[in-house]
């Protein structure tokens, strides 16, 4: 049995009151709840305030480049299918710089969990509009207001039939913990878009704003109906549903690629000279 203590506690570089603290706590609790040992888990992150999160717990970590957590996570999972691979980064990292990887990871349906700290703003670079910032969002980089419409990650993921699509809120710890746990357990690609305030740069979507606007999905809600899920994913700002929005049982990448992507595909396998001779025989 793993415990919270196994995942340690560290000094962070975040602003006091940041939503990242409760997300970090929920992640640790979810790992304990899933009974995972730190050495069986690999966190892959990009760059941004959220991407620092894996530095603040005990696990294997690859803190890569901005936008690239998903490709690194994909390569890692292919190399070692036994690892629980979690990609964790912010909205700018995943939906902006890494947008193409986000779409490809959904299509590929490889067994990775993606946790997106979504504070609707670039925090590390001090307050520019992010892909999820609302239209009209004013910043030093968008002095006339953000001209672009916000990206809706849960709606896009639902349209693309991602295996597991959830939205959580940093202010609902127990609920978020459960969502992360379900996402890890899902065999295939899973997304948890986590709404969080940015106390330094987002004056609009504050903690109390989210508290007023987030609504937990009811127990009677059926997340397996894609059309219904899309309606829920596209609900406007006045009622932001949180919970498992959509899920299906689409076969994962590994199931589809069985044979070429089997357990033997490890760096640990010894080189087989006889098989290599078989390969060379094609060229006589």
């Amino acid at each position: 049995m793993s415990t919270l203590k196994d995942y340690g506690s560290f000094e962070t570089a975040w602003c006091p009151g940041c939503g990242n603290f409760s997300i970090l706590k929920a992640v640790k609790q979810a790992l304990v709840q899933c009974n995972l040992a730190p050495h069986d888990v690999l966190f892959v992150s990009g760059i941004g305030q959220a991407a620092k999160a894996p530095h603040y717990l005990h696990a294997n970590v690859f803190n890569g480049l901005h936008g690239r957590s998903l490709p690194v996570a994909t390569g890692a999972k292919l190399a070692n299918p036994h690892l629980t691979v979690i990609a964790e980064s912010g909205d700018g990292c995943n939906y902006g710089e890494g947008g193409n990887h986000f779409l490809a990871a959904i299509r590929r349906n490889i067994d990775i969990t993606l946790l997106v700290h979504d504070n609707r703003v670039y925090g590390l670079t001090k307050g520019q509009a992010s892909p999820t910032s609302p239209e009209g969002f004013v910043s030093k980089a968008q002095p006339d207001g953000n001209p672009s419409l916000p990206f809706n990650p849960v709606a896009v993921a639902t349209v693309m039939q991602a295996g597991f699509v959830a939205r959580g809120f940093a202010g609902e710890m127990a609920h978020l913990t459960d969502l992360i746990c379900q996402a890890i357990a899902h065999k295939g690609f899973s997304l948890v878009d986590i709404l969080q305030p940015c106390v330094s740069f987002n004056r609009l979507n504050t903690f109390s704003w989210y508290q007023e606007h987030c609504r937990k999905l009811e127990n009677s809600y059926d997340p397996t109906n894609q059309r219904g899920a899309l309606d829920v994913a596209m609900m406007d700002e006045n009622r932001l549903p949180i919970g498992v929005i959509y899920r299906n049982k689409r076969p994962s990448f590994k199931e589809k690629a069985e044979g070429s992507s089997s357990e033997r595909a490890f760096g640990l396998q010894p080189f087989n000279q006889a098989l290599f001779e078989e390969v060379l025989a094609h060229y006589y």
């Binding site: 690999l42 892959v44 690859f62 890569g64 480049l65 690239r68 490709p71 690194v72 996570a73 994909t74 390569g75 890692a76 999972k77 292919l78 190399a79 070692n80 690892l83 595909a265 490890f266 760096g267 640990l268």
Partner: peptide, 11 residues
């Protein structure tokens, strides 16, 4: 980046 992820894990 995939190659780096795989190589990091020993492949």
């Amino acid at each position: 980046n995939m190659a780096i992820g795989a190589s990091f894990c020993g492949a």
